[in-house]
């Protein structure tokens, strides 16, 4: 039944109708709207989109429509020096530090734990601290080979309450003989991880040189190095410029790209306090 305007009813003096009549009157008034479930539909619509884990880089967050989705598997790929690690540290920083609104912690924002499964043993704590990551809230698992890393990730995804789990599969020591076959992870393993992430509402972010999770990744972001900028004399490494291309995304967002500058002068870093 389509919802319509409330019918006007003549006021009846209190005491002249029985409670049963009054209930019936209320049902007559609101019944159509209740049955149509307007309010419920509105709430469901609000909850339909997955919660997002902001990366802290405005351009990337805009590209991803708010950040990396919780409950889904996302991939960040690219060659060395493409800015993958900088993006990762920014993501960890926004997750582990407290976001505030008007001096009070904002609901659902920050001061949360994040887990990093580090297969190449490439996480650098001083860099992370410089990026604003609260190291006390990072669970760092240094594990190899990839099969054990997948087990660790699966176990972490079984732990409810971790909003972000990062699986770093990017090679740090360059290609080695047989490396390609070593990192060929079976599709079934990705299916398991994606299901676990969905069940625990955790944002699972996988870092690598190329897309590995296939269709299990709802979002795949490819970073392409543009240039490194050294300034001053003697020269100092100032920033890395990279291009972020959305190679996989639900809806119409696919193949959009943005240019990102990772350096002290980079615009659009969100303010947290």
């Amino acid at each position: 039944m389509p919802p319509g305007p409330l019918p006007a009813r003549a006021p009846s003096p209190r005491g002249q109708t029985s409670p049963g009549d009054r209930i019936q009157q209320l049902l007559d008034d609101f019944g159509p709207r209740l049955q149509a479930g307007e309010a419920l539909r509105k709430v469901r619509k609000q909850q339909a989109g997955p919660a997002r884990q902001a990366s802290g880089i405005a351009a990337i967050d805009e590209l991803l429509e708010g950040g990396f989705s919780r409950g889904e598997l996302s991939e960040i790929t690219g060659p060395a020096s493409s800015g993958r690690t900088s993006l990762l540290l920014s993501l960890l920083a926004t997750t582990t530090t407290t976001t505030t609104t008007g001096g009070r912690p904002s609901a659902g924002g920050g001061a949360e734990l994040a887990a990093l499964v580090d297969t190449p043993d490439a996480f650098d704590p001083p860099s992370a601290r410089a990026a604003g990551v609260d190291l006390r809230r990072i669970l760092w698992a240094r594990v190899s080979p990839w099969s054990e890393a997948m087990r660790c990730t699966e176990r972490l995804l079984e732990t409810e309450g971790l909003p972000l789990v990062v699986l770093d599969l990017a090679q740090s020591r360059g290609p080695s003989p047989g490396a390609r076959s070593e990192t060929r992870i079976p599709r079934s393993a990705w299916i398991r991880l994606a299901r676990r992430a969905a069940a625990s509402r955790t944002a699972l972010v996988v870092l690598g040189e190329e897309c590995r999770a296939g269709e299990q990744a709802r979002v795949a972001l490819e970073l392409q190095p543009a240039r490194a900028r050294f300034t001053g004399f003697p020269p100092l490494l100032e920033e890395i410029e990279t291009r972020a291309l959305l190679v996989r995304a639900p809806g119409a967002g696919r193949h959009r790209s943005v240019s990102v500058r990772l350096g002290p002068a980079s615009p659009g870093a969100k303010s947290f306090g």
Partner: peptide, 28 residues
């Protein structure tokens, strides 16, 4: 991990994303 009431070590705006170092252990 500290309690959620425990503030971040350096409250204030987050630094802009910097070129991060990816460690190579042991050095190559």
């Amino acid at each position: 991990p500290p309690g959620r009431e425990s503030p971040s070590p350096a409250p204030g705006p987050l630094p802009a994303p910097l070129p991060a170092l990816r460690a190579i252990r042991p050095p190559l």
